[in-house]
Amino acid sequence: MYAEAQEAGEAVARQFAANADAVDDLTDYLRQRPPRFIVTCARGSSDHAATYGKYLFETQLGLVTASASPSVGSVYAVRPQLDGALFVAISQSGKSPDLLRNAEIAKAAGAHVLALVNVLDSPLAGLADTVLGLHAGPETSVAATKSYLCSLSALLQLTARWSNDAALFNAVHELPDALRASFAQDWSPLVEGLVGARNLFVIGRGLGLGAAQEAALKFKETCGLHAEAFSSAEVKHGPMAIVGPGFPVLAFAQDDGTGDSTVAVAEEFRSRGAPVWLAAPGRGGAGSLPLARSLHPAMTPLLTVASFYKAANALSVARGHNPDLPPHLNKVTETV
């Protein structure tokens, strides 16, 4: 896990070079035939990437984006009305039966199916209209790290080209080096603080919500630590009632309009006596976790997660777990 997460910068650079022509062709197509809306379909870490994609598409392109529930097509056999939609299926393996079935349904309904997949000869790649390879390379740790970050970077590269936003394009250019810098950040205070923890909230908002979801999953699967992810807005609608002395909170704040509210929630939890760690660009103080420099808010979640992965690996080892082989889990999960 450590080595694969550390390689994310190189993997993203490889991906950007390999996909440049395919991304240009796809964005030309999408400008000529603008989709009415976007639908994502994924599970696990890939679904957390889809959460990021939703906020990315909606904030940068103004296109309503919804998450398809795979069971609707694979179990309930419902055929949604997807004519004129862009259907984005995200998968490392590209062979989960429920994801394949939903992609087939979407294509038959008239959607343009885009596959973001690490295995280029997978069944999903074979049925998609357009394939953007993740190019993460082999990933042997059960916990997805560089393949998750490559899913986010593929969404970022596509959106930057599609939107013609110069600031976003510059962020894409700098991303590989920024990921390398992110992995070098020292989050050891978080590791030391959570060695004996039993429960945890991870909060984020907007573009950073998917990062919070991904961190909560990694705490569970690699560290044996029960963690729940919440929007910093949604956590105030009930869940925050259980936060107090001895209940840890990890907060990911964005450098955009959601940042101040996320910091405010983190500070409220700290005032109740909760141990709080905050990763927020440009902010210091007690409990602050350092972040590499980000050129754009859409880039920030990738840098946050890259730093988090290094800490999660260290925490897993400190708690007596094997981060590469979590109990009861397989590298590829095939659901129907």
Rank of each mutant, 00 (worst) to 15 (best):
Thr65Asp: 00
Leu63Val: 02
Ser288Lys: 01
Ala166Val: 11
Gly196Asp: 13
Ala111Cys: 02
Tyr309Gln: 15
Gly196Met: 12
Ala66Gly: 03
Pro138Tyr: 05
Glu334Val: 04
Gly206Ala: 08
Met1Gly: 09
Ser231Gln: 13
Gly208Cys: 12
Phe219Gly: 07
Thr145Trp: 04
His328Pro: 07
Asp256His: 04
Pro70Arg: 07
Ala17Ile: 08
Cys41Val: 02
Pro176Thr: 02
His296Asp: 07
Glu267Cys: 09
Lys54Ile: 08
Arg198Val: 10
Phe252Asn: 03
Ala109Phe: 07
Phe183Trp: 14
Ala66Thr: 05
Val202Tyr: 01
Arg198Trp: 11
Asn330Val: 14
Val243Thr: 03
Gly257Leu: 11
Pro281Leu: 03
Met299His: 11
Arg31Lys: 11
Arg79Cys: 12
Ala125Leu: 10
Ala111Thr: 04
Glu234Met: 13
Ala306His: 14
Thr140Trp: 13
Gln92Thr: 06
Pro35His: 00
Leu100Lys: 06
Arg79Asn: 06
Ala89Tyr: 02
Phe16His: 14
Asp129His: 12
Ser91His: 01
Asp28Phe: 02
Ser67Gln: 03
Arg293Ser: 15
Val317Thr: 14
Pro176Asp: 02
Thr262Pro: 02
Ser182Met: 08
Lys54Gly: 00
Ser74Ala: 08
Tyr76Thr: 05
Glu7Asn: 13
Glu7Lys: 15
Ser45Lys: 06
Leu30Trp: 00
Ile105Ala: 06
Thr304Tyr: 03
His112Arg: 10
Arg43Ala: 04
Val119Glu: 15
Leu315Pro: 06
Gly196Gln: 15
Leu61Phe: 00
Ala311Asp: 05
